[in-house]
Nucleic acid binder design. Sequence first.
DNA 1: GTCTATAATGGGATAGAC
DNA 2: GTCTATCCCATTATAGAC
Lengths: 235, 235
Amino acid sequence: MSGNLLKLAGSETGMAPRVDRRRAPETAARILDSAETLFARRGFYGVSLRDIAAEAGVPLALSHYHFGSKENLFSAIIDRRAGEHADSIAAALAGAMLVEGSRGMRRAAIIRALISPIAERFVHGGPGWKNYIRLLAFVANHPQEEDYVSPFKRHYDSLIQSFVKALAAIHPEIAPLDVQWGFFFYQAAITHILVESGMLERQSGGALGSGDFAAMVERIVPFFSAGFLGLGAVD
Amino acid sequence: MSGNLLKLAGSETGMAPRVDRRRAPETAARILDSAETLFARRGFYGVSLRDIAAEAGVPLALSHYHFGSKENLFSAIIDRRAGEHADSIAAALAGAMLVEGSRGMRRAAIIRALISPIAERFVHGGPGWKNYIRLLAFVANHPQEEDYVSPFKRHYDSLIQSFVKALAAIHPEIAPLDVQWGFFFYQAAITHILVESGMLERQSGGALGSGDFAAMVERIVPFFSAGFLGLGAVD
DNA sequence: GTCTATAATGGGATAGAC
DNA sequence: GTCTATCCCATTATAGAC
Protein backbone atom coordinates (compact mmCIF):
# COMPACT_ATOMS: atom_id res chain seq x y z
CA MET A 1 0.00 0.00 0.00
CA SER A 2 2.85 2.43 -0.53
CA GLY A 3 1.33 5.48 -2.03
CA ASN A 4 4.23 7.85 -2.24
CA LEU A 5 5.47 7.18 -5.72
CA LEU A 6 3.95 10.42 -6.76
CA LYS A 7 4.30 11.62 -10.23
CA LEU A 8 7.34 13.61 -11.18
CA ALA A 9 5.45 16.45 -12.71
CA GLY A 10 6.77 19.92 -13.32
CA SER A 11 7.84 19.30 -16.87
CA GLU A 12 7.46 23.00 -17.52
CA THR A 13 9.68 24.38 -14.79
CA GLY A 14 11.62 21.32 -13.86
CA MET A 15 11.34 22.53 -10.30
CA ALA A 16 8.46 20.59 -8.80
CA PRO A 17 9.86 18.59 -5.91
CA ARG A 18 6.46 17.45 -4.71
CA VAL A 19 3.16 17.10 -6.35
CA ASP A 20 1.34 20.25 -7.19
CA ARG A 21 -1.46 20.70 -4.74
CA ARG A 22 -3.97 22.34 -6.99
CA ARG A 23 -4.52 19.85 -9.69
CA ALA A 24 -7.89 18.35 -9.10
CA PRO A 25 -8.20 16.46 -12.35
CA GLU A 26 -4.96 14.69 -11.77
CA THR A 27 -5.82 13.80 -8.20
CA ALA A 28 -9.19 12.50 -9.23
CA ALA A 29 -7.53 10.40 -11.89
CA ARG A 30 -5.07 8.96 -9.42
CA ILE A 31 -7.90 7.97 -7.13
CA LEU A 32 -9.67 6.35 -10.05
CA ASP A 33 -6.53 4.45 -11.01
CA SER A 34 -6.00 3.12 -7.52
CA ALA A 35 -9.62 2.19 -7.09
CA GLU A 36 -9.60 0.42 -10.45
CA THR A 37 -6.62 -1.67 -9.42
CA LEU A 38 -7.95 -2.63 -6.04
CA PHE A 39 -11.57 -3.29 -7.02
CA ALA A 40 -10.33 -5.53 -9.81
CA ARG A 41 -8.37 -7.54 -7.31
CA ARG A 42 -10.76 -7.87 -4.38
CA GLY A 43 -14.17 -6.74 -5.47
CA PHE A 44 -16.39 -3.93 -4.29
CA TYR A 45 -16.78 -5.07 -0.70
CA GLY A 46 -13.21 -6.29 -0.33
CA VAL A 47 -11.72 -2.82 -0.68
CA SER A 48 -12.17 0.16 1.63
CA LEU A 49 -11.93 3.80 0.70
CA ARG A 50 -9.01 3.94 3.10
CA ASP A 51 -7.19 1.30 1.06
CA ILE A 52 -7.82 3.31 -2.08
CA ALA A 53 -6.69 6.60 -0.59
CA ALA A 54 -3.54 4.99 0.76
CA GLU A 55 -2.74 3.42 -2.60
CA ALA A 56 -3.28 6.76 -4.32
CA GLY A 57 -1.25 8.62 -1.72
CA VAL A 58 -4.02 11.08 -0.91
CA PRO A 59 -6.02 11.75 2.22
CA LEU A 60 -9.21 9.83 2.68
CA ALA A 61 -11.43 12.88 2.43
CA LEU A 62 -10.50 13.52 -1.19
CA SER A 63 -12.29 10.49 -2.48
CA HIS A 64 -15.47 11.87 -0.97
CA TYR A 65 -14.77 15.34 -2.27
CA HIS A 66 -14.30 14.17 -5.84
CA PHE A 67 -16.79 11.34 -6.05
CA GLY A 68 -19.22 11.69 -3.19
CA SER A 69 -19.55 8.05 -2.24
CA LYS A 70 -17.98 4.67 -2.73
CA GLU A 71 -20.64 3.63 -5.18
CA ASN A 72 -20.25 6.78 -7.24
CA LEU A 73 -16.53 6.19 -7.36
CA PHE A 74 -17.15 2.73 -8.71
CA SER A 75 -19.48 4.09 -11.37
CA ALA A 76 -16.93 6.70 -12.33
CA ILE A 77 -14.36 4.00 -13.00
CA ILE A 78 -16.65 2.31 -15.47
CA ASP A 79 -17.87 5.54 -17.01
CA ARG A 80 -14.34 6.73 -17.66
CA ARG A 81 -13.51 3.97 -20.13
CA ALA A 82 -16.68 2.15 -21.13
CA GLY A 83 -17.66 4.42 -23.99
CA GLU A 84 -14.40 4.18 -25.85
CA HIS A 85 -14.14 0.50 -25.09
CA ALA A 86 -17.61 -0.38 -26.28
CA ASP A 87 -17.11 1.72 -29.40
CA SER A 88 -13.95 -0.12 -30.36
CA ILE A 89 -15.71 -3.45 -29.98
CA ALA A 90 -18.67 -2.24 -32.00
CA ALA A 91 -16.29 -1.11 -34.73
CA ALA A 92 -14.62 -4.51 -34.77
CA LEU A 93 -18.00 -6.17 -35.08
CA ALA A 94 -18.96 -3.90 -37.95
CA GLY A 95 -15.72 -4.85 -39.70
CA ALA A 96 -16.35 -8.54 -39.11
CA MET A 97 -19.76 -8.33 -40.68
CA LEU A 98 -18.16 -7.26 -43.94
CA VAL A 99 -16.05 -10.42 -44.15
CA GLU A 100 -16.77 -12.56 -47.16
CA GLY A 101 -16.39 -16.31 -47.35
CA SER A 102 -17.87 -19.42 -45.89
CA ARG A 103 -20.28 -19.31 -43.03
CA GLY A 104 -17.56 -20.66 -40.76
CA MET A 105 -15.18 -17.89 -41.72
CA ARG A 106 -17.78 -15.24 -41.11
CA ARG A 107 -18.70 -16.81 -37.79
CA ALA A 108 -15.06 -16.90 -36.70
CA ALA A 109 -14.65 -13.26 -37.68
CA ILE A 110 -17.55 -12.23 -35.47
CA ILE A 111 -16.20 -14.25 -32.58
CA ARG A 112 -12.79 -12.70 -33.02
CA ALA A 113 -14.32 -9.24 -33.08
CA LEU A 114 -15.17 -9.50 -29.40
CA ILE A 115 -11.96 -10.91 -27.98
CA SER A 116 -9.58 -9.06 -30.25
CA PRO A 117 -10.11 -5.46 -29.09
CA ILE A 118 -10.28 -6.65 -25.51
CA ALA A 119 -7.03 -8.56 -25.73
CA GLU A 120 -5.38 -5.67 -27.53
CA ARG A 121 -6.12 -3.24 -24.72
CA PHE A 122 -5.47 -5.80 -22.03
CA VAL A 123 -1.98 -6.45 -23.34
CA HIS A 124 -0.94 -3.16 -24.92
CA GLY A 125 -3.20 -0.59 -23.34
CA GLY A 126 -1.09 -0.05 -20.24
CA PRO A 127 -1.87 -0.91 -16.64
CA GLY A 128 -4.97 1.26 -16.51
CA TRP A 129 -6.74 -0.63 -19.27
CA LYS A 130 -5.56 -3.94 -17.93
CA ASN A 131 -7.09 -3.22 -14.55
CA TYR A 132 -10.26 -1.90 -16.10
CA ILE A 133 -10.78 -5.00 -18.17
CA ARG A 134 -10.07 -7.20 -15.23
CA LEU A 135 -12.64 -5.25 -13.28
CA LEU A 136 -15.20 -5.71 -16.05
CA ALA A 137 -14.67 -9.43 -15.88
CA PHE A 138 -14.96 -9.37 -12.13
CA VAL A 139 -18.28 -7.59 -12.35
CA ALA A 140 -19.60 -9.88 -15.05
CA ASN A 141 -19.01 -12.82 -12.74
CA HIS A 142 -21.05 -11.31 -9.95
CA PRO A 143 -24.74 -11.54 -9.20
CA GLN A 144 -26.30 -8.86 -11.29
CA GLU A 145 -28.67 -7.62 -8.65
CA GLU A 146 -25.80 -5.91 -6.86
CA ASP A 147 -26.24 -2.16 -7.13
CA TYR A 148 -22.72 -1.46 -8.29
CA VAL A 149 -23.24 -3.63 -11.38
CA SER A 150 -25.64 -1.24 -13.06
CA PRO A 151 -23.10 0.94 -14.92
CA PHE A 152 -21.78 -2.23 -16.44
CA LYS A 153 -25.20 -3.18 -17.74
CA ARG A 154 -25.82 0.29 -19.05
CA HIS A 155 -22.71 0.34 -21.22
CA TYR A 156 -22.39 -3.22 -22.50
CA ASP A 157 -25.74 -4.96 -22.72
CA SER A 158 -26.81 -3.73 -26.12
CA LEU A 159 -23.38 -4.41 -27.53
CA ILE A 160 -23.59 -8.04 -26.51
CA GLN A 161 -27.02 -8.28 -28.06
CA SER A 162 -25.67 -7.04 -31.37
CA PHE A 163 -23.18 -9.92 -31.41
CA VAL A 164 -25.91 -12.43 -30.83
CA LYS A 165 -27.96 -10.90 -33.61
CA ALA A 166 -25.01 -10.97 -35.98
CA LEU A 167 -24.40 -14.64 -35.33
CA ALA A 168 -28.07 -15.49 -35.58
CA ALA A 169 -28.30 -13.68 -38.91
CA ILE A 170 -25.71 -15.88 -40.57
CA HIS A 171 -27.10 -19.02 -38.93
CA PRO A 172 -30.77 -19.28 -39.73
CA GLU A 173 -30.42 -23.04 -39.33
CA ILE A 174 -29.84 -22.65 -35.56
CA ALA A 175 -32.64 -21.67 -33.22
CA PRO A 176 -31.97 -18.10 -32.05
CA LEU A 177 -32.08 -19.18 -28.44
CA ASP A 178 -29.38 -21.74 -29.10
CA VAL A 179 -27.22 -19.01 -30.58
CA GLN A 180 -27.78 -17.09 -27.38
CA TRP A 181 -26.60 -20.07 -25.34
CA GLY A 182 -23.48 -20.47 -27.42
CA PHE A 183 -22.56 -16.85 -27.20
CA PHE A 184 -23.17 -16.90 -23.48
CA PHE A 185 -20.71 -19.77 -23.15
CA TYR A 186 -18.20 -17.69 -25.04
CA GLN A 187 -18.61 -14.65 -22.83
CA ALA A 188 -18.19 -16.91 -19.83
CA ALA A 189 -14.84 -18.12 -21.04
CA ILE A 190 -13.64 -14.61 -21.76
CA THR A 191 -14.60 -13.20 -18.41
CA HIS A 192 -13.24 -16.21 -16.60
CA ILE A 193 -9.86 -15.80 -18.25
CA LEU A 194 -9.77 -12.06 -17.78
CA VAL A 195 -10.46 -12.11 -14.08
CA GLU A 196 -7.06 -13.78 -13.83
CA SER A 197 -8.11 -16.05 -11.08
CA GLY A 198 -4.86 -17.94 -11.29
CA MET A 199 -6.75 -21.19 -11.61
CA LEU A 200 -5.46 -21.92 -15.08
CA GLU A 201 -1.85 -21.47 -14.06
CA ARG A 202 -2.31 -23.73 -11.07
CA GLN A 203 -4.22 -26.46 -12.84
CA SER A 204 -1.79 -26.60 -15.72
CA GLY A 205 1.17 -26.70 -13.37
CA GLY A 206 2.32 -23.35 -14.68
CA ALA A 207 2.35 -24.36 -18.33
CA LEU A 208 -0.56 -22.10 -19.20
CA GLY A 209 -1.29 -18.66 -17.93
CA SER A 210 -4.05 -16.22 -18.53
CA GLY A 211 -1.30 -13.73 -19.31
CA ASP A 212 -0.56 -15.74 -22.40
CA PHE A 213 -2.90 -13.71 -24.48
CA ALA A 214 -1.69 -14.26 -27.99
CA ALA A 215 -1.90 -18.01 -27.47
CA MET A 216 -5.27 -17.72 -25.81
CA VAL A 217 -6.88 -15.78 -28.65
CA GLU A 218 -5.66 -18.35 -31.17
CA ARG A 219 -7.33 -21.12 -29.16
CA ILE A 220 -10.52 -19.42 -28.11
CA VAL A 221 -11.60 -18.29 -31.58
CA PRO A 222 -11.47 -21.70 -33.30
CA PHE A 223 -12.75 -23.47 -30.22
CA PHE A 224 -15.88 -21.40 -29.87
CA SER A 225 -16.43 -21.14 -33.57
CA ALA A 226 -16.44 -24.93 -33.75
CA GLY A 227 -18.71 -25.09 -30.74
CA PHE A 228 -21.58 -23.81 -32.84
CA LEU A 229 -21.27 -26.90 -35.00
CA GLY A 230 -22.50 -28.79 -31.96
CA LEU A 231 -25.63 -26.66 -31.95
CA GLY A 232 -26.41 -27.50 -35.55
CA ALA A 233 -24.42 -24.90 -37.47
CA VAL A 234 -23.86 -25.86 -41.08
CA ASP A 235 -20.63 -24.49 -42.48
CA MET B 1 -22.14 -2.23 5.11
CA SER B 2 -24.34 -5.07 4.05
CA GLY B 3 -27.02 -4.89 6.65
CA ASN B 4 -29.41 -2.62 4.85
CA LEU B 5 -29.92 -5.02 1.98
CA LEU B 6 -30.34 -8.01 4.15
CA LYS B 7 -33.20 -7.36 6.45
CA LEU B 8 -33.84 -10.93 7.22
CA ALA B 9 -34.99 -12.89 10.21
CA GLY B 10 -36.60 -10.40 12.49
CA SER B 11 -34.01 -7.71 12.68
CA GLU B 12 -36.65 -5.06 13.22
CA THR B 13 -38.34 -6.19 16.38
CA GLY B 14 -35.37 -7.70 18.09
CA MET B 15 -37.45 -10.85 18.53
CA ALA B 16 -35.36 -13.28 16.58
CA PRO B 17 -37.36 -16.28 15.41
CA ARG B 18 -35.24 -18.72 17.28
CA VAL B 19 -35.92 -22.36 17.15
CA ASP B 20 -35.33 -24.93 19.77
CA ARG B 21 -32.50 -24.29 22.18
CA ARG B 22 -29.82 -26.65 23.39
CA ARG B 23 -29.32 -28.46 20.13
CA ALA B 24 -25.77 -27.78 19.16
CA PRO B 25 -25.41 -29.92 16.06
CA GLU B 26 -28.53 -28.44 14.61
CA THR B 27 -27.49 -24.93 15.50
CA ALA B 28 -24.12 -25.33 13.84
CA ALA B 29 -25.84 -26.71 10.75
CA ARG B 30 -28.23 -23.79 10.67
CA ILE B 31 -25.36 -21.36 10.78
CA LEU B 32 -23.65 -23.25 7.98
CA ASP B 33 -26.82 -23.21 5.91
CA SER B 34 -27.33 -19.49 6.34
CA ALA B 35 -23.71 -18.71 5.64
CA GLU B 36 -23.80 -20.87 2.52
CA THR B 37 -26.80 -18.98 1.21
CA LEU B 38 -25.44 -15.53 1.90
CA PHE B 39 -21.86 -16.12 0.79
CA ALA B 40 -23.13 -17.55 -2.47
CA ARG B 41 -25.11 -14.38 -3.05
CA ARG B 42 -22.68 -11.66 -2.02
CA GLY B 43 -19.26 -13.18 -1.61
CA PHE B 44 -16.97 -13.43 1.38
CA TYR B 45 -16.57 -9.72 2.04
CA GLY B 46 -20.13 -8.81 1.21
CA VAL B 47 -21.60 -10.73 4.13
CA SER B 48 -21.08 -10.08 7.82
CA LEU B 49 -21.30 -12.59 10.64
CA ARG B 50 -24.21 -10.51 11.87
CA ASP B 51 -26.05 -11.08 8.62
CA ILE B 52 -25.44 -14.79 8.97
CA ALA B 53 -26.51 -14.96 12.59
CA ALA B 54 -29.66 -12.99 11.83
CA GLU B 55 -30.52 -15.24 8.91
CA ALA B 56 -29.98 -18.31 11.07
CA GLY B 57 -31.94 -16.83 13.96
CA VAL B 58 -29.14 -17.27 16.48
CA PRO B 59 -27.09 -14.82 18.50
CA LEU B 60 -23.93 -13.55 16.94
CA ALA B 61 -21.65 -15.20 19.48
CA LEU B 62 -22.64 -18.70 18.41
CA SER B 63 -20.89 -18.48 15.09
CA HIS B 64 -17.67 -17.82 16.96
CA TYR B 65 -18.37 -20.55 19.46
CA HIS B 66 -18.90 -23.17 16.77
CA PHE B 67 -16.45 -22.06 14.11
CA GLY B 68 -13.97 -19.69 15.70
CA SER B 69 -13.65 -17.17 12.91
CA LYS B 70 -15.26 -16.03 9.71
CA GLU B 71 -12.65 -17.77 7.62
CA ASN B 72 -13.04 -21.04 9.46
CA LEU B 73 -16.75 -20.85 8.96
CA PHE B 74 -16.20 -20.45 5.25
CA SER B 75 -13.89 -23.45 5.20
CA ALA B 76 -16.43 -25.49 7.11
CA ILE B 77 -19.03 -24.82 4.45
CA ILE B 78 -16.80 -26.25 1.77
CA ASP B 79 -15.59 -29.12 3.92
CA ARG B 80 -19.11 -30.21 4.72
CA ARG B 81 -19.98 -31.13 1.16
CA ALA B 82 -16.88 -31.20 -0.98
CA GLY B 83 -15.92 -34.79 -0.32
CA GLU B 84 -19.22 -36.28 -1.33
CA HIS B 85 -19.49 -33.91 -4.24
CA ALA B 86 -16.05 -34.60 -5.64
CA ASP B 87 -16.59 -38.34 -5.23
CA SER B 88 -19.79 -38.29 -7.23
CA ILE B 89 -18.07 -36.43 -10.03
CA ALA B 90 -15.13 -38.81 -9.97
CA ALA B 91 -17.54 -41.72 -10.19
CA ALA B 92 -19.25 -40.16 -13.19
CA LEU B 93 -15.90 -39.71 -14.88
CA ALA B 94 -14.98 -43.32 -14.21
CA GLY B 95 -18.25 -44.37 -15.81
CA ALA B 96 -17.67 -42.15 -18.81
CA MET B 97 -14.28 -43.66 -19.42
CA LEU B 98 -15.94 -47.04 -19.97
CA VAL B 99 -18.08 -45.73 -22.80
CA GLU B 100 -17.45 -47.40 -26.13
CA GLY B 101 -17.90 -45.81 -29.51
CA SER B 102 -16.43 -43.09 -31.62
CA ARG B 103 -13.96 -40.63 -30.27
CA GLY B 104 -16.66 -37.98 -30.33
CA MET B 105 -19.02 -40.09 -28.28
CA ARG B 106 -16.35 -40.80 -25.71
CA ARG B 107 -15.40 -37.14 -25.56
CA ALA B 108 -19.02 -36.09 -25.05
CA ALA B 109 -19.40 -38.66 -22.29
CA ILE B 110 -16.44 -37.21 -20.41
CA ILE B 111 -17.77 -33.71 -20.82
CA ARG B 112 -21.15 -34.77 -19.59
CA ALA B 113 -19.58 -36.46 -16.59
CA LEU B 114 -18.68 -33.09 -15.11
CA ILE B 115 -21.87 -31.16 -15.63
CA SER B 116 -24.28 -33.99 -15.00
CA PRO B 117 -23.65 -34.64 -11.30
CA ILE B 118 -23.45 -30.92 -10.69
CA ALA B 119 -26.74 -30.20 -12.42
CA GLU B 120 -28.37 -33.13 -10.66
CA ARG B 121 -27.54 -31.78 -7.23
CA PHE B 122 -28.19 -28.20 -8.23
CA VAL B 123 -31.71 -29.03 -9.35
CA HIS B 124 -32.74 -31.95 -7.16
CA GLY B 125 -30.42 -31.76 -4.17
CA GLY B 126 -32.46 -29.25 -2.23
CA PRO B 127 -31.63 -25.67 -1.34
CA GLY B 128 -28.49 -26.59 0.57
CA TRP B 129 -26.82 -28.19 -2.41
CA LYS B 130 -28.01 -25.46 -4.70
CA ASN B 131 -26.42 -22.79 -2.52
CA TYR B 132 -23.25 -24.81 -2.12
CA ILE B 133 -22.79 -25.21 -5.85
CA ARG B 134 -23.48 -21.59 -6.42
CA LEU B 135 -20.87 -20.77 -3.84
CA LEU B 136 -18.35 -23.04 -5.56
CA ALA B 137 -18.92 -21.16 -8.77
CA PHE B 138 -18.56 -17.87 -6.99
CA VAL B 139 -15.23 -18.91 -5.56
CA ALA B 140 -13.97 -20.25 -8.86
CA ASN B 141 -14.55 -16.84 -10.36
CA HIS B 142 -12.44 -15.08 -7.77
CA PRO B 143 -8.76 -14.34 -7.70
CA GLN B 144 -7.21 -17.46 -6.32
CA GLU B 145 -4.79 -15.68 -4.03
CA GLU B 146 -7.61 -14.86 -1.66
CA ASP B 147 -7.15 -16.86 1.52
CA TYR B 148 -10.67 -18.17 1.66
CA VAL B 149 -10.23 -19.91 -1.69
CA SER B 150 -7.82 -22.53 -0.38
CA PRO B 151 -10.37 -25.16 0.71
CA PHE B 152 -11.74 -25.04 -2.80
CA LYS B 153 -8.34 -25.79 -4.30
CA ARG B 154 -7.72 -28.56 -1.83
CA HIS B 155 -10.85 -30.46 -2.74
CA TYR B 156 -11.22 -29.97 -6.47
CA ASP B 157 -7.90 -29.38 -8.21
CA SER B 158 -6.88 -32.99 -8.71
CA LEU B 159 -10.36 -33.87 -9.89
CA ILE B 160 -10.17 -31.30 -12.66
CA GLN B 161 -6.78 -32.60 -13.65
CA SER B 162 -8.19 -36.08 -14.07
CA PHE B 163 -10.71 -34.76 -16.58
CA VAL B 164 -8.00 -33.12 -18.61
CA LYS B 165 -5.99 -36.33 -18.57
CA ALA B 166 -8.98 -38.36 -19.67
CA LEU B 167 -9.62 -36.06 -22.61
CA ALA B 168 -5.98 -35.92 -23.56
CA ALA B 169 -5.79 -39.70 -23.51
CA ILE B 170 -8.44 -40.13 -26.19
CA HIS B 171 -7.07 -37.21 -28.23
CA PRO B 172 -3.41 -37.85 -28.92
CA GLU B 173 -3.80 -35.72 -32.04
CA ILE B 174 -4.30 -32.57 -29.93
CA ALA B 175 -1.45 -30.99 -28.02
CA PRO B 176 -2.05 -31.62 -24.31
CA LEU B 177 -1.88 -27.93 -23.58
CA ASP B 178 -4.62 -27.29 -26.08
CA VAL B 179 -6.77 -29.85 -24.33
CA GLN B 180 -6.12 -27.92 -21.14
CA TRP B 181 -7.29 -24.71 -22.80
CA GLY B 182 -10.46 -26.32 -24.07
CA PHE B 183 -11.34 -27.80 -20.73
CA PHE B 184 -10.64 -24.49 -19.06
CA PHE B 185 -13.14 -22.84 -21.40
CA TYR B 186 -15.66 -25.45 -20.40
CA GLN B 187 -15.15 -24.91 -16.68
CA ALA B 188 -15.54 -21.20 -17.27
CA ALA B 189 -18.94 -21.66 -18.84
CA ILE B 190 -20.10 -23.94 -16.05
CA THR B 191 -19.06 -21.63 -13.26
CA HIS B 192 -20.44 -18.62 -15.06
CA ILE B 193 -23.83 -20.23 -15.40
CA LEU B 194 -23.87 -21.56 -11.87
CA VAL B 195 -23.13 -18.27 -10.21
CA GLU B 196 -26.52 -17.25 -11.53
CA SER B 197 -25.47 -13.76 -12.24
CA GLY B 198 -28.74 -13.02 -13.94
CA MET B 199 -26.91 -11.80 -17.01
CA LEU B 200 -28.26 -14.51 -19.24
CA GLU B 201 -31.85 -13.78 -18.30
CA ARG B 202 -31.35 -10.10 -18.92
CA GLN B 203 -29.51 -10.40 -22.20
CA SER B 204 -32.00 -12.84 -23.61
CA GLY B 205 -34.92 -10.70 -22.53
CA GLY B 206 -36.04 -13.41 -20.16
CA ALA B 207 -36.16 -16.16 -22.77
CA LEU B 208 -33.25 -18.01 -21.21
CA GLY B 209 -32.45 -18.51 -17.59
CA SER B 210 -29.65 -20.21 -15.78
CA GLY B 211 -32.39 -22.01 -13.89
CA ASP B 212 -33.22 -23.82 -17.08
CA PHE B 213 -30.90 -26.64 -16.30
CA ALA B 214 -32.17 -29.47 -18.41
CA ALA B 215 -31.99 -27.26 -21.48
CA MET B 216 -28.59 -25.96 -20.52
CA VAL B 217 -27.02 -29.40 -20.17
CA GLU B 218 -28.33 -30.42 -23.58
CA ARG B 219 -26.64 -27.37 -25.12
CA ILE B 220 -23.42 -27.27 -23.20
CA VAL B 221 -22.40 -30.87 -23.85
CA PRO B 222 -22.62 -30.81 -27.66
CA PHE B 223 -21.28 -27.28 -27.82
CA PHE B 224 -18.11 -27.98 -25.88
CA SER B 225 -17.64 -31.38 -27.40
CA ALA B 226 -17.68 -29.76 -30.83
CA GLY B 227 -15.36 -27.04 -29.62
CA PHE B 228 -12.51 -29.53 -29.51
CA LEU B 229 -12.91 -29.99 -33.24
CA GLY B 230 -11.64 -26.45 -33.52
CA LEU B 231 -8.48 -27.46 -31.70
CA GLY B 232 -7.82 -30.28 -34.14
CA ALA B 233 -9.80 -33.14 -32.68
CA VAL B 234 -10.45 -35.89 -35.20
CA ASP B 235 -13.66 -37.77 -34.57
C1' DG C 1 -24.35 -24.67 24.46
C1' DT C 2 -26.65 -20.44 24.69
C1' DC C 3 -26.94 -15.63 25.17
C1' DT C 4 -26.13 -10.57 26.69
C1' DA C 5 -22.92 -7.24 26.85
C1' DT C 6 -18.88 -5.13 25.41
C1' DA C 7 -14.23 -4.67 23.77
C1' DA C 8 -11.37 -3.16 19.94
C1' DT C 9 -10.98 -2.02 15.39
C1' DG C 10 -12.30 -0.44 10.88
C1' DG C 11 -15.88 1.37 7.92
C1' DG C 12 -18.13 5.48 5.09
C1' DA C 13 -18.92 10.01 5.48
C1' DT C 14 -18.40 15.10 7.07
C1' DA C 15 -16.78 19.77 9.22
C1' DG C 16 -14.03 23.24 8.89
C1' DA C 17 -9.22 25.20 8.81
C1' DC C 18 -6.12 26.40 5.22
C1' DG D 1 -8.75 21.56 -3.71
C1' DT D 2 -6.43 19.76 0.09
C1' DC D 3 -6.05 17.83 4.55
C1' DT D 4 -6.62 16.92 9.77
C1' DA D 5 -9.65 15.52 12.97
C1' DT D 6 -13.76 13.48 14.10
C1' DC D 7 -18.59 11.53 14.04
C1' DC D 8 -21.20 7.55 14.10
C1' DC D 9 -22.08 3.09 13.04
C1' DA D 10 -20.79 -1.79 11.62
C1' DT D 11 -17.47 -5.18 12.11
C1' DT D 12 -14.98 -9.34 14.20
C1' DA D 13 -14.16 -11.23 18.29
C1' DT D 14 -14.31 -12.19 23.45
C1' DA D 15 -15.83 -12.34 28.52
C1' DG D 16 -18.63 -14.20 31.52
C1' DA D 17 -23.46 -15.07 33.37
C1' DC D 18 -26.70 -18.78 32.94
